[in-house]
Nucleic acid binder design. Structure first.
Lengths: 209, 209
DNA sequence: GTCTATAGGCGGATAGAC
DNA sequence: GTCTATCCGCCTATAGAC
């Protein structure tokens, strides 16, 4: 990219990554071809390989970027000195809002990462499990503290995380809900679902960090 | 009279359909090849075409079978003369349990149906929307009757149905939960999430029909 | 850093023998 | 109803010119 051009946006490598994430979400990893990607970016198929060595590498990079971004955000919330129910509310709202706003990347993280090559998939599974364990731990904390009713934390986490994944697939901008609208509704539903009667006692902070 | 469960030694066409559903769930429609399917069934790729004219036709048939099966079951529950909260509890438990037990077919219905050819996808979307509207209607009924707290029924349905979809992807038999375990936990969580404090007042019937 | 050209393989699907 | 053999197109990826 030449210095004389006014910054028309992102560098080519990043534009490629963005378009790849979008295509992988909409057509799935196996349904999106390198030709599709080249067309979306506006270069030839061959030129893609100057920036990334393979289609697999693109997916790995998208997943890696997301994996580096989300856990610290949720871990920070989990470490707050407020009740478990409030921490979980914030964590779910953040995760949901981000899932919608950055749905191209989060879709690759949550749905397309299963197509990572065998060399990478084991490590990714571990990281993803650790990320999701943050939510389960908050649920366990809330049960222990009496914020939530006694229940199986593993099934509760499964319900909550599945609900959040659904936001990516079901979100349609034209429906008129903002990411924060959905994030708040989902966090409220989850906290109530865990057994909190009165949402007034929840310190929800800001849905958007 | 289609059998969703694998019958011991039945007709080739049905074994093909069953294996196709399994492959489409595990490798996704675009990731599973006709060669994969032929190998799984134990015949050659060519022989598949004696039973089904195309890969698309296989997906369409799987989706159609499921679409013919589920809505009547949920509609029957929706028509019961019990409170909306009880009807929704039963509907969610049924849908979740069935999603897990027949996850190959339900995964094709909920996740892979997006790869239906343009000729079929419009009609399918309509049917799927009608099916999901059954759940949203139950939520609206419950809000109107005062069973549930006031809230956006569209977002609530989105949360509930996303949670149920998640059961398919997240279920692992080796974790030791039965489909009914998960179905009951999810139905309880959903009903509480909608604002019912006391699950004792729910007439949950049997999770398995 | 982008292009043209092409390799090499696998995809879905078909023809026709038995 | 299953087989062998084959078509053809698209796939990922590479070579090498500019």
């Amino acid at each position: 990219m030449t210095h004389l051009d006014a910054p028309p946006g992102l560098e080519t490598a990043e534009r490629i990554l963005h378009e790849a994430a979008a295509l992988f979400r909409t057509k799935s990893f196996n349904g999106a071809s390198m030709q599709d990607l080249a067309t979306a970016v506006g270069i030839t198929k061959s030129s893609l390989y100057h920036h990334y060595p393979s289609k697999q590498a693109l997916l790995a990079e998208i997943v890696e970027v997301t994996m580096s971004r989300m856990p610290p955000l949720v871990a920070e919330i989990a470490a707050l000195d407020i009740p478990a129910a409030s921490r979980l509310h914030r964590a779910i709202a953040l995760h949901t809002a981000e899932s919608i706003r950055e749905r191209d990347y989060l879709a690759c993280f949550s749905e397309e990462s299963r197509y990572l090559s065998p060399a990478f998939i084991g490590l990714h599974r571990e990281k993803k499990d650790r990320y999701e364990a943050l939510f389960q731990q908050l649920i366990e904390d809330g049960i222990d503290s009496g914020d939530f009713v006694a229940q199986d934390p593993s099934l509760a986490a499964m319900a909550v995380l599945g609900m959040c994944d659904g936001a990516i697939r079901r979100y349609r901008p034209e429906d008129g809900y903002s990411p924060d609208d959905i994030a708040t509704a989902f966090a409220n539903a989850a906290i109530r679902g865990l057994g909190v009667h009165d949402l007034e006692q929840i310190d929800a902070g800001e849905a958007t960090p």
